[in-house]
Design a binder for these strands. Structure first.
Lengths: 151, 151
DNA sequence: TGCGCTCCTGACCAAGGAGGTCAGGAAAGT
DNA sequence: ACTTTCCTGACCTCCTTGGTCAGGAGCGCA
C-alpha cells in the first residue's frame, strides 16, 4: 500500500509538463525542476510515452509534451502507466479472487479500497494539480486535521 | 499501491480467529480454513502477536486467539502490523515530503489518498468482516457497479 | 519425569522489483 | 556533418516477497 518513487516522479514530471505553455520541454529541465535523476527520469518518460500520455521529439528543440490537454489527464492515468493496475491483491485484481469461510466479505473490502483510491486518483487532473484547485471531495479529505497525522 | 499476500493472509487468519468462539485455535486449522501455507502463516501470526493483536499459547490445547474483542480490531490494525504504515510515498510519510514547483499540491493529493484508505480500513472491524455488515460508507463504495470493473 | 503437542525463532533461498547508472544508437534541427 | 536530445537495452546493488527448513522452548498431561 505504498507509492513508489517512480510513480511520484512520474506525476511530478507530468505536472511540470502540464504547466509548460506550448512547445517541448527537455528532459533535463524536468529533472532539474523536480530534482529527479535524469537518466532514471528518461526511462519513466519513455513509459509515459508508450502509455500514450506524453509525446516526444528528438534533437535540438526536442523534448516532451502532454499528448492530451492537462485537464484530461488524471493522476490515475499517470500512476497506472508506471505502476500498473491500482490496488491489486496478491498481483490479481480483487474482483477475480475467491474468498472462503469467514473471509468471504473481504473481497468487498478490497473492492471498496480500490474504489476509494479511484475517487481520489481518477478525479484529480494534472490541471487541478498545477493550479491547486483540487476537486471538492479530495480537498475535503485533505482538509481533515486527522489526515495529516501519522498512525 | 498493491496489497501483499502477507496482508491478505493476515486479515483472513484474523477473520477466522474473530469467528472462533472461545478458546485457542491451532495454526494448522487457520491454515486449512483459509488455504495458507502453514509455516508462512506461523511467521505472520508471530508478527500479529508482536503487534499485540493476537495472543498465543503453546502445547496441547494451545493455539491463537484475538487479544481484543473482534469489534475493536480494524483491518487497518492488521495490515499495519504486517505491512507497516499505510500509503507511504518513497518510504516516507506523505506529510514529511516537500514538493517544489508545479508539484507543490501533490502532497495534498497523497494525504487525501491516505485519508481515503483510512476511511475504509480503519472503519471495518473484524466483527464487521465476519458477519458481512460493513459500515455504510464502505458498502456504498463496494456497491457501485463501476467498482467491480478493472481499469 | 517424560512425552507429545504447538508455538517460536532464526537461517536460508529463489525470484523479482526498486531505484538507479552506463553505453550506445537513432532521429531531428541547423 | 555535427550537435542535440530522445530511445533502448544491459547492467548493477540492495531489498522485498513469498516461501521452506531445522531446531528450540514452553505447555499440558500421564
Amino acid at each position: 500500500m505504498r507509492v513508489s518513487a517512480k510513480a511520484d516522479y512520474a506525476v511530478r514530471a507530468a505536472a511540470e509538463l502540464a504547466a509548460a505553455e506550448e512547445g517541448p520541454v527537455k528532459g533535463e529541465k524536468l529533472a532539474d525542476a523536480q530534482d529527479i535523476p535524469l537518466q532514471f527520469l528518461e526511462h519513466i518518460l519513455l513509459e509515459l510515452k508508450h502509455a500514450g500520455i506524453v509525446r516526444a521529439r528528438r534533437g535540438a528543440k526536442g523534448g516532451y509534451w502532454l499528448a492530451r490537454p492537462a485537464d484530461e489527464v488524471t493522476i490515475a492515468d499517470v500512476v497506472r502507466a508506471v505502476e500498473g493496475p491500482i490496488a491489486h491483491v496478491q498481483s490479481a485484481p480483487p474482483e477475480s479472487i475467491e474468498y472462503r469461510g469467514n473471509a468471504e466479505h473481504l473481497q468487498e473490502v478490497w473492492i471498496a479500497v480500490r474504489a476509494s483510491l479511484r475517487t481520489v486518483l481518477e478525479h484529480v487532473t494534472l490541471a487541478d494539480l498545477v493550479n491547486g484547485q483540487l476537486p471538492s471531495e479530495v480537498s475535503a479529505l485533505a482538509a481533515q486535521p486527522d489526515a495529516w497525522v501519522a498512525r
